[in-house]
């Protein structure tokens, strides 16, 4: 890591664990839960957020001295909305099926609290390069949770990963299905996303007791 100084590296590693945007900062929950029934959708969503956050943080940081503080929210929203339109059009052009699955949740990246939260907390006070790195770091932290949740929900819910039948074929009774294993269709339903994230928070906080809240 010759290019990145130690301080910059911390901007990337912190959001991955002890300052994770979803489990600690409680930002960006909405989209994290709604689209994680399949691993593929989670990965695409993560990439979209990575793109929007990196570039958005960079742009806002460049403009931080010329934005009048009173209208900064509107300016931020316009910047994000522009980037999200780009993502949406690219998805529609190259992955039409997937963009149908994600439906309005691509649009909802605009109001994803992670993005606004990092603009307010970081990009308005730091230089463009550092802001870009911060954006990428937080997007990676977000991606990590999304992929973990998507992995378990798809594996336990439909017995596949990225569409491949890793547990065998449930109809022909091959693989683990030969021993009487059944898919837990409940994992595919919306409420299990919440409970899965709850369990991730539980595991994380019992490993690192500093993070425990007092109600």
């Amino acid at each position: 890591m010759g290019v990145l100084s130690k301080k910059d590296l911390k901007l990337i590693t912190d959001p991955l664990a002890d300052n994770n945007p979803i489990t600690i900062q409680v930002l960006g929950i909405c989209s994290a839960l709604a689209i994680t029934a399949e691993l593929k959708a989670s990965i695409v969503m993560s990439i979209a957020v990575l793109f929007v956050m990196g570039l958005g943080n960079f742009t806002i940081s460049l403009m931080r001295n010329i934005i009048p503080p009173k209208i900064r929210i509107i300016v931020q929203l316009i910047v994000v909305a522009t980037l999200v339109i780009i993502v949406d059009l690219v998805l529609k052009a190259f992955a039409y099926e997937l963009s149908k699955t994600l439906s309005v949740f691509v649009g909802l990246i605009i109001t994803n609290c992670i993005i606004m939260g990092r603009f307010e907390a970081f990009a308005l006070a730091n230089g463009p390069i550092r802001s870009f790195i911060d954006g990428v770091g937080n997007a990676l932290g977000y991606a990590l949770i999304l992929i973990i949740v998507g992995f378990f929900r798809e594996l336990l819910g439909s017995g596949t990963l990225l569409g491949f039948k890793v547990l065998g074929n449930p109809i022909e009774k091959t693989g683990v299905y030969a021993y009487g294993y059944e898919n837990n269709g409940f994992m595919l339903l919306a409420p299990m996303a919440l409970i899965t994230v709850g369990i991730i928070i539980w595991v994380q906080r019992s490993r690192n007791t500093d993070l425990i809240e007092d109600n």
């Binding site: 409420p191 919440l194 709850g198 539980w202 595991v203 994380q204 019992s206 809240e213 007092d214």
Partner: peptide, 22 residues
């Protein structure tokens, strides 16, 4: 349980409520 306090238990309760709303 201590690690679940605050955010964790809120998530799980919301999940249970969502099941109820289904």
């Amino acid at each position: 349980p201590a690690p679940l306090r605050g955010l964790g238990i809120t998530f799980i309760i919301t999940g249970l409520m969502a099941i109820g709303f289904m």
